[in-house]
Amino acid sequence: MTEAAGTPATSRPYSSSVERGSYGPAPANLADILERVLDKGIIIAGDIKVNLLDIELLTIKIRLLIVSVDKAAEMGIDWWRNDPMLSSSEQGLADENRELRRRLEELEAGSGGDRADD
């Protein structure tokens, strides 16, 4: 079993400014943070209008991770390079990204399609 702390429950001084990186152990996984702050929590309308559909589309995008292979590598996601079983499917990944982008464009154009739900 592996265990990782979300953010440490010790009494380290908190700072959410750019100096954050110098405090304590590694911060929580971005995927785990986004999954919660974009899709969970209290959802109410503020005074600054945020189109809920935009947030939902963003959540879908994050789930589908519509990024180019290069951008994903920048983010440190490059497991397909290391796994010899998968490197031959890089082309498959690019094809799949194209298809996912097409589906997302359809969703954005309001032409329906499946929506991920919990």
Binding site: Y14, V37, K40, G41, I42, I44, G46, D47, V50
Partner: peptide
């Protein structure tokens, strides 16, 4: 997280601005 350390907390979804 800082708030959760010091009291009962109901976290907001991102970008709710009044």
């Amino acid at each position: 997280y800082a708030v959760s350390e010091v009291g009962a907390v109901a976290p907001m979804r991102l970008v709710t601005i009044c």
